[in-house]
Each structure stands twice: as structure tokens, then as C-alpha cells.
Design a protein around this nucleic acid. Sequence first.
RNA 1: GCGCCUGUAGCUCAGUGGAUAGAGCACCGGCCUCCGGAGCCGGGUGCGCAGGUUCGAUUCCUGCCAGGCGCACCA
Length: 562
Amino acid sequence: MAGIVEQMRERLAGALRDAVHEAGQKGALPAVQELPDFIIEVPREKEHGDFATNLALLLPRAMRLPPRKIGEIIVSRLKLTGLPVARVEVAGPGFINFYLQPAWVLAELPHIVREDENYGKVNVGKGARVQVEFVSANPTGLLHMGNARGAALGDSLAAILDFAGYRVTREFYINDAGHQIELFGLSLEARYFQLLGLPAEIPREGYHGEDLIETVKGFYALHGDKYLRAAAEERREALVRYALQEKLAAIKKALEDFGVHYDVWFSEASLHASGAVQEVIERLQEKGCLYEHEGALWFKAREFGVEKDEVLVRSNGLPTYFAADVAYHRNKFQRGFDLVINIWGADHHGHVPRMKGALAALGYNPDALHVIIMQLVRLFRGGEIVKMSKRSGQFVTLEELVEEVGKDAARYFFVMRSADSHLDFDLDLARSQSNENPVYYIQYAHARICSIFRQLQDMGGAGPDASRVDLFLLQEEAELALARKLADFPEEVALAARECAPHRLPRYLHETAGLFHSFYNSCRVISDDAALTAARLILADATRVVLKNGLRLLGVGAPERM
RNA sequence: GCGCCUGUAGCUCAGUGGAUAGAGCACCGGCCUCCGGAGCCGGGUGCGCAGGUUCGAUUCCUGCCAGGCGCACCA
């Protein structure tokens, strides 16, 4: 399954190891017990070859020889028969540079075309079960830009991990219990009374958004004033139940329109109802990790390297959000996930150490929880920052964003930056249908390729059979550069998965599209030369496959026409 | 005050313990009798500051400066 680049790397590494080993046995080099962790990199500079290794730079201390000398000896012992290596040099401070025959990478093209939608799959995950929890917004309102970024990041990361050989579950944790819901209920109740012409005030800390007026109207249409005289608790519960399903439906809809689908919607309330929260508190109690102080029950977080202890049960007897979250994470591991990934906003980063502390207290490996902290989003329109405030209901929602700039641009822009970088989202740029917009640049390359094949069909031609095409006709620099880039795709996927770094892909795809455009501009695909045409069609088709697969991992469409 | 994130080209951002640090935008100048010009080609005095580790630091460590976010019996 590994791509040709990785294969080449492994074969060169093997040859290097053998050479050092043999030189050690023959006395040409001092014998070393173990080889250091050398790397085989693709040099930035073309002049430094197709691959280079720092092996000889890591050995001088152990061998008491200058690095270049070591390099020379290693090179003299290298056995590279069967590899498309044109020459090997020791250069600079002691790098060993490998220069390959220019066409070595063409062998990947038939493979790409054959694998088609599966090309780029790797086996980094080895079937490990991973859960990605993301967005998990309060189901009391609409999704904002922070949620949107989390949605784009989480869904792309999940897709990448899936492509990289993990068994992935996408999960949304619904905060449908606790203090916030209490306030939600009180706010709804106030709106309900107001609707019925009764004086009522929303609590100061409550939900002041006007959307609740609509919500309550819907509730009224269903139940009338029936709950006016009901017990307060019953009334609020009915209002909350109604409002939650309405809000949650809106959230689901917005996410669906954003191309984000979940496997599991996990209710916090269910943890309270099932006794899981109580159970995890008891478990921590048994382990001696709790103590009482001023009527509250505290978790000894400091014993796990956290700055301060944390309340699990308030003095009013109600468990905190933290208690439920501990129960939730215990539940995740009980379900057998090998790796649990959470995507949280920067405003929650303080929560990470105590969550890990709680997991350690429960006997789980805290390193199996990987929290991706995502920095905040600022929106720009017309060069001005778009002010947002939740209190006044003045914020751009995910729906509005998708409506304004489209799903593809929105998803691309959110994933374009690394999670730990503050994101300045330029609405004008995302909306512009011009060369300023990187999304269109990539999609345009894809559409162009599709157009070539449409043209071929119109001319009565058929797509060539990759196994019968002489790919060595592809000798132009632009052709080889593009083919080389395509062959990097599996490694890009592997790196994005290993580093939990979806933002690598937009960059890679942009570069790939750029190389295609250069190729397209300097080489005519369909020409009188049937053999060359066939070879170029394979290259174009392989490009189409890579672009399409890459865009799919980002949740961005690959249109055949634009 | 303490903790986390960030500081790279005019702007928005990539990047790496290595050999000459990149991309997009913006700006300037070129390119179609030809498969989609939403394209191509050319144009670059920049790693916040100061120390340290290293054969080698933009990358790792320490201090400082600047911005963001946290430091509730909220979530």
C-alpha cells in the first residue's frame, strides 16, 4: 500500500544500514552497536539530489572520524543494484545525496490511476479505534465561528485518520444537563410568560437571544397555555425538552449542510440518568482521590500535577460539568477506544490537565487522550473586524457563513491554518470567485482535467490503459515535477494523520494544482502524437485522482465544471 | 501574578536540529492563430529581543518584550 516514495526511502535506508554494517565487519569503519536514528529526507534544493541522509553526520562522535570521511566510506560500500539511482555523493558537512534517474517516479502513475478513490490510503493507524469528539456545542442556540472551525477541523481530521487506517468514530457531546440547562429553562419560562402577556424577567446570566421568542411560540402552538398553571419544574422541563430538540435539530441541519456527519450524538443527561456520574464519583472516592471542603466534594487534582484541585460535587449537592465530563471520558475508554481525540476551543485549555489527571486517577493512560486546542476565529469583512457578541445575539452563525461564502470555501479556510494559529477569516476573500481564492484554484485544476476528458470523448477517443502506455515519454520538467508531487500524496496523508494536522492538505493540494497548471500550460495533452497523448492523459488522470481524494478529505467538492 | 497559544516578506500564514527559509494576496512587467485566462512565466534586504546547548538553531532550553486565551462550588 505504501507509495513509491516511501518504498524508495526504505530501500535506501536498508542499503545504508547494510553498508555501515559491512564496513564495520571488514574494519573499514569502527563497529557500532546501534545505528543512530538517521533520516532520509527530500532536500529542499534540487542540487542536493532526490534524497539525502544525515547518517554520516550522526556518527563522528562514536567513530572518532570526520563526517565526510565516514560518508565516503559508507558510499563506497553501498550496494544499489536494482535501484534507479544515478549517482551518490557526499556533500556539504557530510550529507549523502542520492540522485535518481529522472523518470523513477513515473512508475507510481499507473498505481494512482488503478487505486483511484483509494489512492493515498496508508496504514498508520493499523486498525486502532479512535474517537474524535468535536463541536459539542451547547444545544441552546446556533453554532458560531468557533464551532464552525471545530466542525471543519474535526471532520477533516476524522476523514484523514480513517484514510490512514484508523477505525474512526465521530462524536458530538450534547451538554443537555447542568447549570446551563437550568438557566435555559428559566429563560424559556420567562419568554413563555411574556408571550402570555405576563410580566417575567430572564435571569441576568440566562439566554437573552431573541430566538427563544420563536421557540416559545412553537411550544405555544403545540401546548397553548396548558403549562401556565403546571408546577414550575414540570413547566420548565417541558419547555427545555421542546427547545432542546428544536435547537439540536437546527444544529444537526447546519452541520449536515456543512458536510459534517456524526456517528454518535452523546447526551450528557444520559450520564446522569444512568448513574454513570455517581458511579465515577464513587470510584474516585474509593481510590482516595476525593475530599470534602466547605460542603463540596473536591478531586485531588494536585496529586496529578495540576495546579489546583477541582470541585466535583457542589455544596448544593449537584455534580459539576467536570464530574459529568469525567464520567463521559471514562465511558469513552470503557467503549474500547485506543485513542480519544477532543477538539476544544482555546478558552477550554485549562480543562486539559485536570481531565488527564482524572483519567490517571481512574487508572487510564492520560496519553491516550489527545486534546487539540484550537485558537479563536476573527471574522473580517471589508478589511474590518466583524464584532460579535453572544449577549446581544450579534454573531455570525454557521448557516449564515455557509450561505455567504459557500460550504467549500468555508471548510477550506477553516482547515487552511494550523489549529493553534489564530484564524483571521476574510469573508470577502472566501466569497470572491476569482484567482484570489485558493479554493477555486484547486477546484479549477480538477475541472480543467475533467474538461480534457470530455473533449477526448467528444473526439471519439477513450481513456488509455495505463498498463499499455509508455510513460517514459514524459520527460518534460513540468511533467516529472507533477508526477513527483502526486507520489507524495500517501506520505502527506500519513503525516497529516500522525501529527493530527489537517492543515497540511490544503497546502499540498494547492501546490499540486499549481504544478498541474504549469504542466497544462507548457504541454499540450491531446495532440497528434498518440503515444504521448496517452502518457499525458495518464498523468492528468492521476492528478485528477489525487486532487479529488484530497479535497474529499477536506469536505470540499471537486466539481467537473465550474 | 501564574499557566497555555502565538510572534517568520507590506498583509494572511506554512515550514525544519542541517547545506541558498517558502506559499497565497497585494504590487510591477510579460504570455493565447492551440485542450477552460478562475491559467502560465518573471520580479524577494523577512525568522520579536538577548543569552545558552550543538559540528550546525528560525527550530531545543532560559530570560525579556508584544498580542490572544485561561486561572468559578460556569460550561
